[in-house]
Simulated assay, not measured.
Amino acid sequence: MKPETKSSKIRQRYSQQYKTEALALAEKVGVSAAVRQLGLHESQLYSWRSKARLAADRSGVEERLLVENARLKRQLAEQSEELAIIKKGRSVLRQGPEVKYAFMQNYSEEFKSTSMSRVLGVSRSGFYRWRQRGEQPTRRQQQRTVLDKLVANAFFARKMRSGSPRLVLDLYDQGHAYDRKTVAASMKRQNLRAKAPNQKWASDITYLWTAEGWLYLAVLIDLFSRQVVGWALAERMTADLVCQALQMALWRRNMPKGVVLHSDRGSQYCSAAYQRLVMKHHLVAGMSAKGNCYDNACAESFFHTMKVEAIHGEHFATRKEMRHTVFEYIEVDYNRIRRHSANGRISPMVLEALKAA
């Protein structure tokens, strides 16, 4: 037997959501068609199907035990957290709301705001209003935010191909007079360019409506090719949602390091769980300035395209139907087939294949 070499093919890993939707596609179009569309092997689908059936065979008693065990663990965790809050916040228990809010801000990475507000006897809404008052941007920050929006908007309008000299002219035509150094500084600050895969990923979350209620979709898009490298769907917009999407991207891209992650300052991306994942894999969190939604304009553009081409005008009775539609649009159509204007009218996966050739 020959020893493995460094050139051996790296085994591809897939998230559970991906496996579930791949099996659903196989039920719809058949195993042979599904593996052709997704670039898989039949043995993979059959293996996933066997494991899914084994998991579905759990008895009702086992399920109830698991649910009860999880409930008791949550209850114990909540009680432990409350005791820890009391221990560290004993000195502020009899203080006014402002002092308690400051305590909550200082320990926001360690304790949940719901637990702290309950123990300290203050409202979460009051805490959020207090924190917002302290985050009002200065006049200079507001001017910089306006500039960054204009520059990023013009940059993406030119399909990410223009440098600062051309953007200066584009902005002047729009009635905004900035010199080249100012525009170049804005481009550098926002870190807009990507010359190869796995340099910059843009991330964002969108809402998808079904007759059963909302479904939330988080994506990560490679700014070089516009390929959706990671995605996740959930019924709640939590930190776990963006962590699942990031984990999928890491698996799909064979655990790259140093990738700049563009996102807004939403609580999911600021969460301790997401930041731990970023640091664990040596990534770089490049959050937008407060109020600037254009650092992840590429992700927003994808959401608009997906909704126009696959969702608007359709009725989705269940979240399951929406999951199937999103999966097929991303994995079958958008990444592999759909021609993208920013790629010279070729698909994201074709562009990356040409880059690697």
Rank of each mutant, 00 (worst) to 15 (best):
H262T: 01
A52I: 02
E4V: 09
Q136D: 10
N69I: 05
E63A: 14
L220M: 08
Q16V: 06
Q190A: 14
Y294K: 07
L72A: 08
E309Q: 14
G126V: 01
V284C: 01
E309A: 09
H324M: 12
Q75S: 14
K88Y: 14
A196G: 04
R226W: 00
A26H: 08
E98Q: 13
R226M: 08
N153D: 15
R144L: 12
V29A: 02
A299T: 10
Q17C: 08
K9P: 04
G258P: 05
Q268E: 14
Q132K: 07
E314Q: 15
L223V: 02
L283Y: 03
W214H: 06
R236S: 09
V67M: 04
A310I: 04
A196Q: 09
E63N: 12
Y269G: 02
G30D: 03
C293V: 08
T20E: 13
Q16S: 13
A185V: 00
S203N: 05
V92I: 05
Y274C: 04
K307V: 04
K188N: 06
K159V: 13
M287H: 13
V35S: 06
L120M: 04
T318C: 09
L83H: 06
T114R: 15
G175K: 12
V259H: 02
Q12D: 05
V151T: 04
S123Q: 06
G213V: 00
A26M: 08
L40F: 15
L220R: 00
T210F: 01
P3Q: 04
R129V: 10
V31F: 08
A55R: 14
A177T: 07
R140I: 10
T145Q: 14
L208P: 02
F103K: 03
L250N: 01
I330N: 02
G163Q: 04
V259W: 01
R133D: 07
L38I: 12
K88L: 15
G291I: 07
S186N: 03
L246C: 11
L241H: 00
L72M: 08
A273S: 12
S59T: 12
Q44H: 05
T114D: 06
D179Y: 04
N106D: 11
R161C: 11
A317D: 11
A34N: 05
Q268R: 04
Q136E: 15
